[in-house]
Design a protein around this nucleic acid. Structure first.
Lengths: 186, 186
DNA sequence: GGGTTTAAAGCAATTATTTTGCGTTAGGAG
DNA sequence: CTCCTAACGCAAAATAATTGCTTTAAACCC
């Protein structure tokens, strides 16, 4: 098992990680998935293949790490003025990202990993987002009767499930119903 | 894209498919995941590697096919006398299978695929199961106010989500609450 | 700051896997 | 029974993965 995260954060190590991740994202838009190889990625990143093998182990693990990074929220999610609105904006954007063909690849790469630490991090990011929405709601004085886990179970659960098994069956109206149900439950 | 399913069903082709699938299942219990290679599988199955490459394309796709097969229900699920009971028995068995280490691999292999047809088949099997439970409930005279999709959204959604991102947080009591919520909703 | 230590990267040789062209085999159709 | 063809086997060639050793550059300690 390799560590991959923040080994000697400032310096060459970090630059290599950045270069490799960038190379993967670039090449994902340029070549078919089955010709996306580690030697190709290494060349684009300006490093030797053995560096990639030693740090990430395999293409599968590398793709999982890059995919997980794309699941990480980059900016503060918008404040819509209500919990339901915040959840819809957030989950809606996720939904739109992941129904697309590249999004489907990202989701598959992330879910295809068995790295528990990686999955745990993804889960934590989602918890953090929902936690932020709940804090906002509380600050507004909204009465909320459900916890983070239940919201994730009833929103991200069905959403991830459908995105994986039947991506053509998701829609904004369906997502609205999920959110309404989640907020109404308990 | 390859077809894989039922090409010249009766004959050599089917025997090869069987032998290869069997070899994968055997070897999955014997060797670490990263030394499970196509040449190894081919040797165990008594075929040449090129046969496997030509039919399945890559290890990833082969594993996805084998994993999907394990998600297919083999026997008629037990009739417990109530819809809630049927759902709990079925989803509970799925949960127990998939929290285990080999189960986690199977789930990751299946979810890691981007073969829409394969995913669609998995979804269909689950629809069929729930449909059967609903038919039984109807025959018993149970009043049921929710449809197949909602039951899958509220049971298999959260379950698959948690099995993927936080397998240590599932439990039978949690699953019971999911099922109760699903049956009470709408 | 300058010297020391040590992860991590580069390089190159070795090994393993993947691809491919072509001959062969065995189901399926007439 | 014979022909036709998809799928398999075989072996050579191309490509990718592994590994031992060397070199580089962060990090650490005076």
């Amino acid at each position: 098992m390799r560590t991959t995260t923040a080994v000697r954060p400032g310096g060459r190590s970090a630059r290599v990680q950045q270069a490799v991740h960038d190379a993967v994202r670039q090449l994902a838009d340029e070549v078919e998935r089955d010709q996306l190889t580690i030697p190709l990625i290494a060349e684009r990143a300006g490093v030797t293949p053995s560096t990639v093998y030693r740090r990430w182990g395999s293409l599968k693990e590398l793709m999982a790490h890059v995919a997980a990074e794309r699941l990480k929220p980059e900016a503060e999610p918008q404040d819509t003025g209500s919990l339901a609105g915040d959840l819809l904006a957030w989950a809606g954007e996720f939904m739109e990202d992941m129904v697309s063909l590249p999004g489907q690849q990202v989701l598959a790469d992330a879910l295809g990993s068995t790295d528990a630490a990686l999955k745990g991090r993804c889960r934590q990011w989602q918890c953090d987002q929902v936690s932020l929405f709940l804090a906002r709601a509380h600050a507004r004085g909204e009465i909320v009767s459900c916890d983070i886990d239940t919201l994730l179970d009833l929103i991200m659960g069905p959403l991830t499930y459908r995105l994986s098994y039947a991506p053509d069956t998701v829609s904004e109206s369906w997502l609205r119903r999920c959110i309404a149900r989640a907020l109404g439950s308990m």
